[in-house]
Amino acid sequence: MKRWIGPLAMFTICAVTAHGLTLVQAPGFIMARAMDALDARGVALHAFTAPQRITPQTQQVVRSSPDLYYALCRYDLSGPGTSLSVTMAEWPGYQSLSFFDARTDNFTTLRGTGRQIAVRLLPPGSSPQAGAIVSPSAKGVILIRRLAPDSARFAAAAKVGEGDACRVIG
């Protein structure tokens, strides 16, 4: 019996470690794969990509809503002093500007129904500043949602989206 204590301890340590590592790494792994997939499908780095209306044929992300206009901007603030200027243009209906870090956390959402929002995104470790948000990770995704449940309003949202901006300023 005594000779099995070592193997049993080894089994337990390996199982617990693998279990924990899998859970900790899963969101980052899935987000990294999603970012690669968005890149492959033409979602730009440091620019909002004009979206197609969500249909079964155009969907890129799981559980996308066919009733919303989604504009995505991938970002990478790993270069020294790099930050972003982000603008969500004015839209009369519901719209939001949301920020997701490399571990899928939605670290900030700004609701902008009927108004324009402009904000700067700073790299991890930056000091807080007025009109700026500090990203918890160097890489992530910025997402604009606009309520546009029919093709006419989607076209109008796309027109308004020409005023959206996601550009490097540093």
Partner: peptide
């Protein structure tokens, strides 16, 4: 949100990527 337990975080990453926090 960061408050989600690791199981929820992993599940949402797979099935609900880019989901908003509850206040929105």
């Amino acid at each position: 949100s960061e408050a989600a337990d690791p199981y929820t975080r992993a599940r949402v990453a797979r099935h609900g990527l880019l989901a908003l926090a509850k206040t929105e």
